[in-house]
Every structure is written in C-alpha cells, then in structure tokens.
Design a protein around this nucleic acid. Structure first.
Lengths: 233, 233
DNA sequence: CGTTAGATTGAATACCCTCAACGAGAGTGG
DNA sequence: CCACTCTCGTTGAGGGTATTCAATCTAACG
C-alpha cells in the first residue's frame, strides 16, 4: 500500500482489474475529476432494472448481485460482482435501459463514473474499446455456460458447482470457510431454485461430509466428491 | 438484386446486417480475397465445442444452432443464428476455444473469414471494434434474459415465449405459419426441456386454439393468450 | 433480552423426465 | 410402384425431483 491517494482514479489500484487499465494517465485524470465516490449499505440498490444509466459504477469494495426479480417474488441472480468490476457497462455501451438491477450484498464503496468521457474514449481509444470487448465477451461465455447448466444439470449439481465457483473465485478464510458468505436464499437464487431445496441439498452434502457448515458459513471438505457430482458421477 | 457479384464481400448485402458494415471498401476487399465460401449440409457441424477457431463464419444462407451437448445426450441450444450473423466471433476475439458447437439446422452457405485481417481491424479500426462490442453486448443481454426465464418461468411459459420469439424474429409465411420450422426436439432444446414435454405443451396450446399445427409447422392463432401466459396470467 | 432475519424440517402437491410403444410421412432402392 | 427405413410426431404411464406452505428453531443485533 504505497499509494495514499486512492481517491484519484489514476492512483487507484482497483482499475488494474478492469477495462479502465487501458486508459492513460491523462484520461484517468479526466475521469477522476468527474467521478463520485458513493457508499452503499447492504441491501440498498445501486441501480434498478429498467433505469437508463448515465454512467457506470466501479466497485471499490464489497459485493453486489446483478439480478432480476419476478412478479412472484423470485429473484434470479445472474452475476456476483466484487472489487474491481464495473457495473452498468452494458447498459451504457448500448444506451439501453438496464435489464438487471444491482443490489449490495454487503456494505459497499463504489465510484460512479459519468458516461460522457467514457463514450469519448470508446470512440477514440481502441485499446479501451478492446478491453471492454474482451470483458463483455467473457461475460457472454459465462452466461452461456449458465444457460447450459440450468438446462442440463439438476439442483444438486448446480449447487455443488456454485460452491466450487465461490471457493475458486473468492477464496477461503484461515479456517477454510468460503470467504464469500451468502445466505441460503442467495445461493438458491444463483442456482435458480427455492431456498428450501438449496438448504436440503446442503444438509445432504453435510451428511456426506462433503461440506461443513457453521451458521451461514460454508467450508468445502471434499472438493473431489463435489466435482464428481458436477460431472455427473 | 442489382448486385451481381456477391462473391465479393464489398458487394455482399449480408454484411449490412453485421459488424462488417463498419469496414470500408479497402478493408472489405482485403477480407474478400482471403475468405472461403463453403456450403454446409443440414446436420453437419460448422465447428465443434472446444475447437480453436482461426476465423469466423458469416452466414449467407440457412439456419444454424449454437448449442452444447451433455454426456447424457441433452443438447441445449443457446442461440439460433441465421443470415447475416457471424459465428465464432467470441472465440476469435478472446482467442479461447469455442464453448459451443455450431450445427446447421438447414442447408447453409457460410463464408469463412480467416482471423488475421480481422485482428488487425480490431486493433486499428475503432468503428469496427465498437460494432462488434455492441453486438456482443446485445447477445449478453439476451443470454441474461434466458437465464432469468429458465429460472423463473415454467415450461409452458418458456415455450409460449419461444414461439413468439420465433414469429417476431423470423416472420410468417403467407399462410401465417412461422417461417422458421424447427423440430419439436429443437424447440425443446431451446426451452431446456424434454421433447415430450414440448409436444404435450404444444398439443395443449392447440386444444386451446392458441396455435395451429400442420406437421412440424406452427402458426400462432392467439398471440394475446400466449403473451398473457408468459406474463404469468 | 426481545426482535427479527435466516436456517431447518415436514408433508402434500405439482411439475417434469423417462421409458416405451405407436403412428405418419419422406426418401430410397429394388 | 411397393416395401423398407429413418426421422419425427404423438400418447400413456410411472417415478422423481423440486415447489410450496407451514411450523419450528437459531443466531445475529440493537
């Protein structure tokens, strides 16, 4: 942490993680001047489905979900976004309304970056455009895989896969528990099933000694078994 | 059809439909010289999952599915691509293996465009890069919506939605039947269900006089009812 | 401590999958 | 032209899996 002026984009470490890394010092300074840092409390919404965004949100801290709520109260999570990810990118690029809402799963700190400058860079800085393109392309691949999984795998397999994903992407604490602690309901909403089905599956995993739970925290005890399950035995 | 030399990209009408429209005459000529036109018979594969593509395929005619086959024989269709769409774009951009396979649903004519030139243009022509970005961003939105639908809607609703989608996107013939005729199994594979479930739902729709069928052809007779169903009554 | 969100379990039900058999049309070869 | 095969559509029945509603329990938190 040799950087003491994180409040300026050009000094912010976070940008290394996303497409903003393709911008040069000048461009970053210009963005820095127009950005607004905002703190979001757990449960609060960053933006809602159907909004027209006039800028993107760069996550500096905390976790959020991108999801869509249906009329019957079901909330399908499409993506979990953490430090370094840029929210609202798609909507700003295509100038369409958002099709998902972003809600904080923990207290967060996000930087709001108005689109005016970004649009310029997208039009003039190929490297920047390319960086965004690569990122969106990856998101598309990820989304396609989810579609296939939802169709071809059952709840058990999808939950196993989600646990492994969470461990691989967000790591474990010193006790081995998955760092990213989600409620059972959130996990259910990622997997696309009901809270109870999720809980029942987790208890089944526990009975097999494949996982250990402590409150909402989860530790994977037998990754191989989970992987075998995902692959279909 | 005042254009008699479709064999050259710069004269091909198809390109108006996709990102290639952002290229200028020079660039198109260069592409035209390296491209290969290829005809693909119904059922044949254009590329398979896991391949490393060295170019993209521009569809000039016919219909193809982008899908992934699971070990148990289930084939989930993620996207139907027709005239004007470019296949393999994502894979070429990210230089990753394809995560889906492309199979012809009808006899097709595709132009294979080696990536060497494309890569140059992506690095130098912002307009081209932007065009691709917009397209991929749209595909991402579409994919996200599918995820949500798979999780929140039941088979009936998803089939209704698919029928409406097919009618809206591919139109109807003079008798009102949906131009895009897919087998029941293909529809099931789009929706993510079993062939039989698809058939039963269609017969139920027929009984309600919401659709008319004639062999594999389908005509929507009561779009409002289908829409109401999709919205959840 | 009381309050409340979240975890857990049970039981009834609805939905969908799977296997299996049959039918109908299209194309092929004799 | 007919028999044959192959693909696709259709229907029935049985079994699972996941949903839903309801009740209880637990842990976090002011």
């Amino acid at each position: 942490m040799e950087d003491h002026s994180e409040s300026k984009c050009e000094n912010c470490i976070i940008r290394q993680l996303n497409s903003l890394k393709a911008l040069n010092k000048e461009e970053l300074k210009s963005i820095s001047n127009s950005k607004v840092t905002r703190s979001v409390k757990k449960g609060e919404s960053i933006f809602a489905e159907g909004e027209k965004l006039k800028g993107v949100f760069c996550v500096r801290n905390g976790v959020s979900k991108l999801s869509k709520m249906s009329d019957n109260g079901k909330d399908q999570i499409v993506k979990i976004a953490t430090k370094g990810e840029v929210l609202g990118q798609r909507s700003v690029i295509t100038q369409q309304k958002t099709n998902l809402s972003a809600i904080a799963l923990s207290d967060m700190e996000v930087c709001y970056i108005p689109k005016n400058h970004l649009s310029d860079y997208i039009s003039n800085n190929v490297e920047f455009t390319k960086a965004i393109l690569l990122q969106i392309a990856d998101e598309l691949k990820f989304a396609d895989n989810i579609i296939v999984n939802m169709a071809q795998k059952n709840v058990k397999q999808r939950i196993a896969e989600t646990l492994i994903y969470l461990e691989n992407n967000f790591g474990v604490d010193r006790e081995g528990f998955i760092t990213m602690t989600l409620t059972r309901e959130d996990i259910a909403n990622i997997v696309g099933t009901a809270k109870e089905a999720c809980i029942r599956t987790l208890t089944a995993f526990k009975k097999e000694d494949w996982i250990v739970t402590e409150g909402k925290r989860i530790k994977i005890a037998n990754k191989k078994a989970l992987n075998r399950l995902v692959e279909g035995l």
